[in-house]
Amino acid sequence: MDKHNLTVLNEFILTGITDRPELQAPLFGLFLIIYMISVVSNLGMVILTKIDSSLQTPMYFFLRHLAITDFGYSTAVGPKMLVNFVVNENTISYYFCAIQLAIFILFINSEFFILSAMSYDRYVAICNPLLYTVIMSQKTCWVLVATPYLYSTFVSLLFTIKIFTLSFCGYNVISHFYCDGLPLLSLLCSNAHEIKLIILIVAAFDLISSLLMVLVSYLLILAAILRMNSAEGRNKAFSTCGSHLTVVVVFYGTLIFMYLQPKSSDSFDTDKLASVFYTLVIPMLNPLIYSLRNKDMKYALHRALGQLCNIFSQSSLYHMIHIHYIMCFKLFPVCLQRVEQAQKHG
Protein backbone atom coordinates (compact mmCIF):
# COMPACT_ATOMS: atom_id res chain seq x y z
CA MET A 1 0.00 0.00 0.00
CA ASP A 2 1.18 3.49 -0.80
CA LYS A 3 2.70 5.22 2.21
CA HIS A 4 0.67 8.29 1.36
CA ASN A 5 -2.46 6.41 2.34
CA LEU A 6 -1.03 5.47 5.75
CA THR A 7 -2.10 8.73 7.33
CA VAL A 8 -0.71 9.64 10.73
CA LEU A 9 -3.87 10.05 12.79
CA ASN A 10 -4.17 12.68 15.49
CA GLU A 11 -7.71 11.80 16.52
CA PHE A 12 -10.60 9.41 15.98
CA ILE A 13 -14.29 10.11 15.49
CA LEU A 14 -16.70 8.07 17.62
CA THR A 15 -20.10 7.36 16.05
CA GLY A 16 -21.65 7.25 19.53
CA ILE A 17 -24.74 5.34 20.61
CA THR A 18 -27.16 7.02 18.20
CA ASP A 19 -27.08 9.61 15.44
CA ARG A 20 -30.66 10.78 16.05
CA PRO A 21 -30.57 14.37 17.44
CA GLU A 22 -33.90 14.08 19.28
CA LEU A 23 -32.48 11.24 21.44
CA GLN A 24 -29.28 13.01 22.47
CA ALA A 25 -30.72 15.01 25.42
CA PRO A 26 -32.87 12.18 26.91
CA LEU A 27 -30.00 9.67 26.64
CA PHE A 28 -27.59 12.16 28.18
CA GLY A 29 -29.89 12.60 31.19
CA LEU A 30 -30.47 8.85 31.53
CA PHE A 31 -26.79 7.88 31.35
CA LEU A 32 -25.76 10.77 33.60
CA ILE A 33 -28.10 9.44 36.31
CA ILE A 34 -26.84 5.87 35.80
CA TYR A 35 -23.20 6.93 35.93
CA MET A 36 -23.66 9.12 39.03
CA ILE A 37 -25.44 6.28 40.87
CA SER A 38 -22.61 3.95 39.83
CA VAL A 39 -19.90 6.34 41.09
CA VAL A 40 -21.60 7.09 44.41
CA SER A 41 -22.55 3.47 45.14
CA ASN A 42 -19.17 1.96 44.18
CA LEU A 43 -17.10 4.58 46.00
CA GLY A 44 -19.47 4.24 48.94
CA MET A 45 -18.93 0.48 48.89
CA VAL A 46 -15.14 0.96 48.88
CA ILE A 47 -15.22 3.44 51.77
CA LEU A 48 -17.77 1.49 53.82
CA THR A 49 -15.95 -1.85 53.56
CA LYS A 50 -12.72 -0.08 54.49
CA ILE A 51 -13.83 1.86 57.59
CA ASP A 52 -16.47 -0.38 59.18
CA SER A 53 -14.97 -2.87 61.62
CA SER A 54 -17.73 -5.47 61.06
CA LEU A 55 -16.90 -5.65 57.33
CA GLN A 56 -13.24 -6.65 57.71
CA THR A 57 -13.72 -10.17 56.34
CA PRO A 58 -12.49 -11.79 53.10
CA MET A 59 -15.93 -11.55 51.49
CA TYR A 60 -16.03 -7.76 51.87
CA PHE A 61 -12.37 -7.49 50.91
CA PHE A 62 -13.21 -9.02 47.52
CA LEU A 63 -16.38 -6.95 47.33
CA ARG A 64 -14.30 -3.80 47.78
CA HIS A 65 -12.09 -4.75 44.85
CA LEU A 66 -15.12 -5.64 42.75
CA ALA A 67 -16.37 -2.08 43.38
CA ILE A 68 -12.94 -0.70 42.41
CA THR A 69 -12.99 -2.55 39.07
CA ASP A 70 -16.59 -1.49 38.41
CA PHE A 71 -15.68 2.12 39.11
CA GLY A 72 -12.51 1.82 37.00
CA TYR A 73 -13.93 0.61 33.71
CA SER A 74 -17.19 2.59 33.94
CA THR A 75 -15.16 5.78 34.52
CA ALA A 76 -12.87 4.92 31.61
CA VAL A 77 -15.92 5.02 29.33
CA GLY A 78 -18.71 7.02 31.02
CA PRO A 79 -17.45 10.64 31.20
CA LYS A 80 -16.26 10.69 27.58
CA MET A 81 -19.53 9.14 26.40
CA LEU A 82 -21.50 11.82 28.29
CA VAL A 83 -19.38 14.60 26.78
CA ASN A 84 -20.05 13.23 23.30
CA PHE A 85 -23.79 13.75 23.79
CA VAL A 86 -23.37 17.54 24.16
CA VAL A 87 -20.63 18.33 21.61
CA ASN A 88 -21.07 18.75 17.87
CA GLU A 89 -18.29 16.36 16.86
CA ASN A 90 -17.55 13.19 18.82
CA THR A 91 -13.77 13.17 18.59
CA ILE A 92 -11.16 11.53 20.81
CA SER A 93 -7.43 12.15 20.55
CA TYR A 94 -5.10 9.35 19.39
CA TYR A 95 -3.31 9.07 22.74
CA PHE A 96 -6.45 9.40 24.88
CA CYS A 97 -7.99 6.61 22.80
CA ALA A 98 -5.01 4.40 23.66
CA ILE A 99 -5.26 5.31 27.36
CA GLN A 100 -9.01 4.64 27.41
CA LEU A 101 -8.52 1.22 25.81
CA ALA A 102 -5.72 0.29 28.24
CA ILE A 103 -7.66 1.33 31.37
CA PHE A 104 -10.83 -0.38 30.19
CA ILE A 105 -9.07 -3.69 29.46
CA LEU A 106 -7.20 -3.54 32.79
CA PHE A 107 -10.34 -3.25 34.93
CA ILE A 108 -12.78 -5.36 32.89
CA ASN A 109 -10.25 -8.20 32.72
CA SER A 110 -9.56 -7.93 36.46
CA GLU A 111 -13.27 -8.30 37.17
CA PHE A 112 -13.31 -11.77 35.56
CA PHE A 113 -10.85 -13.17 38.08
CA ILE A 114 -12.11 -11.19 41.09
CA LEU A 115 -15.54 -12.76 40.51
CA SER A 116 -13.77 -16.13 40.37
CA ALA A 117 -11.94 -15.37 43.64
CA MET A 118 -15.26 -14.43 45.24
CA SER A 119 -16.77 -17.77 44.17
CA TYR A 120 -13.79 -19.59 45.69
CA ASP A 121 -14.28 -17.60 48.90
CA ARG A 122 -17.94 -18.69 49.04
CA TYR A 123 -16.89 -22.31 48.39
CA VAL A 124 -14.48 -22.27 51.34
CA ALA A 125 -17.03 -20.53 53.60
CA ILE A 126 -19.71 -23.16 52.93
CA CYS A 127 -17.69 -26.34 52.37
CA ASN A 128 -14.90 -25.73 54.92
CA PRO A 129 -16.35 -23.35 57.51
CA LEU A 130 -14.07 -24.53 60.34
CA LEU A 131 -10.93 -23.85 58.29
CA TYR A 132 -12.26 -20.69 56.65
CA THR A 133 -10.09 -18.20 58.57
CA VAL A 134 -7.00 -20.37 58.02
CA ILE A 135 -7.51 -20.93 54.28
CA MET A 136 -8.72 -17.39 53.48
CA SER A 137 -5.92 -15.62 55.31
CA GLN A 138 -5.03 -12.02 54.56
CA LYS A 139 -2.04 -13.19 52.48
CA THR A 140 -4.24 -15.51 50.40
CA CYS A 141 -6.77 -12.77 49.77
CA TRP A 142 -4.08 -10.37 48.57
CA VAL A 143 -2.62 -13.03 46.25
CA LEU A 144 -6.08 -13.71 44.78
CA VAL A 145 -6.51 -9.98 44.09
CA ALA A 146 -2.98 -8.88 43.18
CA THR A 147 -2.50 -11.67 40.61
CA PRO A 148 -5.48 -10.58 38.45
CA TYR A 149 -4.36 -6.93 38.61
CA LEU A 150 -0.80 -7.80 37.51
CA TYR A 151 -1.95 -10.19 34.80
CA SER A 152 -4.58 -7.73 33.51
CA THR A 153 -1.99 -4.93 33.42
CA PHE A 154 0.20 -7.13 31.23
CA VAL A 155 -2.72 -8.01 28.91
CA SER A 156 -3.81 -4.37 28.75
CA LEU A 157 -0.37 -3.11 27.77
CA LEU A 158 0.12 -5.98 25.30
CA PHE A 159 -3.14 -5.28 23.46
CA THR A 160 -2.76 -1.50 23.47
CA ILE A 161 0.87 -1.43 22.36
CA LYS A 162 0.26 -4.05 19.66
CA ILE A 163 -2.73 -2.15 18.22
CA PHE A 164 -1.29 1.35 18.38
CA THR A 165 2.11 0.46 16.92
CA LEU A 166 0.42 -0.77 13.73
CA SER A 167 -0.52 1.56 10.86
CA PHE A 168 -4.00 3.05 10.60
CA CYS A 169 -5.57 4.03 7.30
CA GLY A 170 -6.86 7.53 6.69
CA TYR A 171 -10.37 6.46 7.70
CA ASN A 172 -10.64 7.30 11.42
CA VAL A 173 -14.32 6.70 12.29
CA ILE A 174 -14.79 4.18 15.14
CA SER A 175 -18.22 2.53 15.02
CA HIS A 176 -18.65 2.63 18.77
CA PHE A 177 -19.07 5.07 21.68
CA TYR A 178 -15.60 4.32 23.11
CA CYS A 179 -12.24 2.98 21.90
CA ASP A 180 -12.86 -0.74 21.89
CA GLY A 181 -10.37 -3.23 20.49
CA LEU A 182 -12.47 -4.82 17.72
CA PRO A 183 -13.64 -1.56 16.07
CA LEU A 184 -10.03 -0.30 16.16
CA LEU A 185 -8.78 -3.46 14.43
CA SER A 186 -11.10 -2.75 11.49
CA LEU A 187 -9.26 0.56 10.88
CA LEU A 188 -5.80 -1.01 10.58
CA CYS A 189 -4.00 -1.07 7.24
CA SER A 190 -1.19 -3.29 8.50
CA ASN A 191 -1.49 -7.04 8.71
CA ALA A 192 -3.49 -7.45 11.94
CA HIS A 193 -3.60 -11.26 11.86
CA GLU A 194 -1.16 -11.61 14.77
CA ILE A 195 -2.92 -9.21 17.15
CA LYS A 196 -6.33 -10.68 16.23
CA LEU A 197 -5.05 -14.16 17.06
CA ILE A 198 -3.55 -12.93 20.35
CA ILE A 199 -6.81 -11.21 21.34
CA LEU A 200 -8.85 -14.31 20.45
CA ILE A 201 -6.60 -16.66 22.47
CA VAL A 202 -6.33 -14.38 25.52
CA ALA A 203 -10.05 -13.49 25.55
CA ALA A 204 -11.03 -17.16 25.25
CA PHE A 205 -8.59 -18.16 28.02
CA ASP A 206 -9.79 -15.41 30.37
CA LEU A 207 -13.49 -16.06 29.79
CA ILE A 208 -13.31 -19.87 29.91
CA SER A 209 -10.85 -20.15 32.83
CA SER A 210 -12.64 -17.64 35.06
CA LEU A 211 -16.08 -19.02 34.23
CA LEU A 212 -14.88 -22.59 34.77
CA MET A 213 -13.58 -21.62 38.21
CA VAL A 214 -16.97 -20.12 39.06
CA LEU A 215 -18.89 -23.16 37.79
CA VAL A 216 -16.69 -25.67 39.65
CA SER A 217 -16.98 -23.65 42.88
CA TYR A 218 -20.77 -23.52 42.64
CA LEU A 219 -21.11 -27.19 41.74
CA LEU A 220 -19.16 -28.06 44.89
CA ILE A 221 -21.25 -25.57 46.87
CA LEU A 222 -24.47 -27.10 45.51
CA ALA A 223 -23.29 -30.59 46.43
CA ALA A 224 -22.46 -29.41 49.95
CA ILE A 225 -25.84 -27.70 50.34
CA LEU A 226 -27.74 -30.80 49.19
CA ARG A 227 -25.92 -32.83 51.87
CA MET A 228 -27.13 -30.47 54.62
CA ASN A 229 -29.87 -31.87 56.84
CA SER A 230 -31.01 -28.52 58.20
CA ALA A 231 -33.40 -26.44 56.06
CA GLU A 232 -32.20 -23.35 57.92
CA GLY A 233 -28.60 -24.17 57.00
CA ARG A 234 -29.53 -24.62 53.33
CA ASN A 235 -31.40 -21.30 53.27
CA LYS A 236 -28.46 -19.52 54.91
CA ALA A 237 -26.04 -21.02 52.40
CA PHE A 238 -28.23 -20.00 49.45
CA SER A 239 -28.61 -16.47 50.82
CA THR A 240 -24.83 -16.24 51.28
CA CYS A 241 -24.27 -17.03 47.59
CA GLY A 242 -27.35 -15.29 46.19
CA SER A 243 -25.87 -11.85 45.58
CA HIS A 244 -22.65 -13.12 44.03
CA LEU A 245 -24.49 -15.61 41.82
CA THR A 246 -26.80 -12.85 40.57
CA VAL A 247 -23.82 -10.64 39.68
CA VAL A 248 -22.05 -13.55 37.91
CA VAL A 249 -25.11 -14.47 35.83
CA VAL A 250 -25.70 -10.87 34.73
CA PHE A 251 -22.03 -10.17 33.93
CA TYR A 252 -21.16 -13.38 32.09
CA GLY A 253 -24.59 -13.61 30.48
CA THR A 254 -24.16 -10.18 28.89
CA LEU A 255 -20.66 -10.98 27.57
CA ILE A 256 -21.68 -14.40 26.23
CA PHE A 257 -24.71 -12.86 24.51
CA MET A 258 -22.50 -10.18 22.98
CA TYR A 259 -19.75 -12.43 21.61
CA LEU A 260 -21.72 -15.57 20.70
CA GLN A 261 -24.66 -13.91 18.91
CA PRO A 262 -24.98 -14.57 15.14
CA LYS A 263 -23.39 -11.73 13.18
CA SER A 264 -25.78 -9.72 11.04
CA SER A 265 -26.21 -6.24 9.61
CA ASP A 266 -27.57 -5.10 12.98
CA SER A 267 -24.73 -6.68 14.99
CA PHE A 268 -22.96 -3.35 15.56
CA ASP A 269 -26.12 -1.82 17.08
CA THR A 270 -26.64 -4.91 19.23
CA ASP A 271 -23.00 -4.76 20.34
CA LYS A 272 -23.49 -1.13 21.38
CA LEU A 273 -26.54 -1.98 23.49
CA ALA A 274 -24.72 -4.87 25.15
CA SER A 275 -21.67 -2.64 25.70
CA VAL A 276 -23.82 0.01 27.37
CA PHE A 277 -25.19 -2.65 29.68
CA TYR A 278 -21.86 -4.06 30.85
CA THR A 279 -19.93 -0.76 30.88
CA LEU A 280 -22.51 1.39 32.72
CA VAL A 281 -25.54 -0.58 33.92
CA ILE A 282 -23.73 -3.54 35.53
CA PRO A 283 -21.34 -1.30 37.56
CA MET A 284 -24.45 0.47 38.87
CA LEU A 285 -26.31 -2.78 39.65
CA ASN A 286 -23.50 -4.66 41.43
CA PRO A 287 -23.27 -2.52 44.60
CA LEU A 288 -27.07 -2.20 44.71
CA ILE A 289 -27.48 -5.99 44.54
CA TYR A 290 -25.02 -6.51 47.39
CA SER A 291 -26.44 -3.66 49.47
CA LEU A 292 -30.10 -4.59 49.14
CA ARG A 293 -29.53 -8.31 49.86
CA ASN A 294 -27.02 -7.95 52.68
CA LYS A 295 -28.02 -7.13 56.25
CA ASP A 296 -24.42 -6.42 57.33
CA MET A 297 -24.10 -3.80 54.58
CA LYS A 298 -27.39 -2.17 55.62
CA TYR A 299 -26.36 -2.00 59.29
CA ALA A 300 -22.92 -0.67 58.36
CA LEU A 301 -24.51 2.02 56.18
CA HIS A 302 -26.85 3.04 59.00
CA ARG A 303 -23.91 3.27 61.42
CA ALA A 304 -21.88 5.32 58.97
CA LEU A 305 -24.75 7.72 58.35
CA GLY A 306 -25.34 8.00 62.10
CA GLN A 307 -21.68 8.84 62.71
CA LEU A 308 -21.76 11.36 59.89
CA CYS A 309 -24.81 13.04 61.40
CA ASN A 310 -23.10 13.18 64.82
CA ILE A 311 -19.99 14.74 63.32
CA PHE A 312 -22.10 17.28 61.46
CA SER A 313 -24.15 18.12 64.57
CA GLN A 314 -20.93 18.88 66.48
CA SER A 315 -19.44 21.05 63.75
CA SER A 316 -19.44 24.85 63.69
CA LEU A 317 -21.34 24.76 60.39
CA TYR A 318 -24.24 23.01 62.12
CA HIS A 319 -24.32 25.63 64.88
CA MET A 320 -24.25 28.44 62.33
CA ILE A 321 -27.16 26.86 60.44
CA HIS A 322 -29.02 26.29 63.72
CA ILE A 323 -28.54 29.92 64.83
CA HIS A 324 -29.60 31.12 61.38
CA TYR A 325 -32.71 28.94 61.60
CA ILE A 326 -33.63 30.36 65.04
CA MET A 327 -33.05 33.93 63.86
CA CYS A 328 -35.06 33.54 60.65
CA PHE A 329 -37.92 31.32 61.71
CA LYS A 330 -38.35 32.01 65.43
CA LEU A 331 -36.94 35.34 66.64
CA PHE A 332 -37.57 37.38 63.51
CA PRO A 333 -41.34 36.60 63.30
CA VAL A 334 -41.73 37.44 67.01
CA CYS A 335 -39.90 40.75 66.54
CA LEU A 336 -41.95 41.54 63.45
CA GLN A 337 -45.17 40.79 65.31
CA ARG A 338 -44.19 43.14 68.17
CA VAL A 339 -43.29 45.91 65.73
CA GLU A 340 -46.69 45.57 64.06
CA GLN A 341 -48.45 45.69 67.45
CA ALA A 342 -46.48 48.80 68.43
CA GLN A 343 -47.44 50.52 65.18
CA LYS A 344 -51.11 49.74 65.77
CA HIS A 345 -51.02 51.16 69.31
CA GLY A 346 -48.84 54.08 68.24
Rank of each mutant, 00 (worst) to 15 (best):
Leu106Tyr: 11
Val145Asp: 09
Arg64Trp: 11
Ser230Leu: 03
Gly233Trp: 05
Leu317Arg: 11
Ala274Tyr: 11
Ile323Gln: 14
Cys179Met: 04
Ile326Asp: 08
Leu55Thr: 05
Pro58Phe: 05
Ala304Asn: 03
Asn109Gln: 11
Leu280Gln: 15
Ile126Met: 04
Val8Met: 04
Phe205Arg: 00
Thr49Leu: 12
Leu211Pro: 09
Lys162Asp: 13
Lys162Glu: 14
Val214Tyr: 02
Ser156Glu: 10
Gln307Ser: 08
Leu336Met: 09
Thr133Pro: 03
Leu285Ser: 06
Leu6Trp: 04
Pro21Met: 04
Met1Gly: 12
Ile33Met: 10
Leu288Met: 13
Leu215His: 04
Leu336Cys: 09
Ala76Thr: 07
Ile323Thr: 14
Tyr252Lys: 02
Ser209Pro: 09
Phe107Ile: 01
Asp19Met: 07
Phe205Ser: 11
Met213Asn: 10
Gly242Glu: 04
Leu255Trp: 11
Ala125Glu: 03
Val83Ser: 13
Phe168Trp: 06
Thr75Ala: 15
Ala117Val: 09
Leu220Trp: 08
Cys241Phe: 09
Ser316Val: 08
Leu255Val: 01
Ile99Asn: 00
Ile201Thr: 11
Val77Pro: 15
Leu305Gln: 02
Gln341Leu: 11
Ile33Lys: 02
Ser152Pro: 02
Ser93Ala: 07
Val86Ala: 13
Asp271Ala: 14
Cys127Val: 12
His322Phe: 06
Val145Arg: 13
Lys162His: 04
Val214Asp: 03
Leu131Arg: 13
Phe61Ser: 11
Ile163Thr: 06
Pro79Trp: 02
Met297Asn: 11
Arg338Trp: 07
Gly181Arg: 01
Phe12Tyr: 04
Thr49Glu: 09
Leu305Cys: 05
Ala223Gly: 15
Val247Trp: 13
His324Glu: 11
Met81Ile: 11
Leu9Ala: 00
Thr160Asp: 08
Val276Tyr: 13
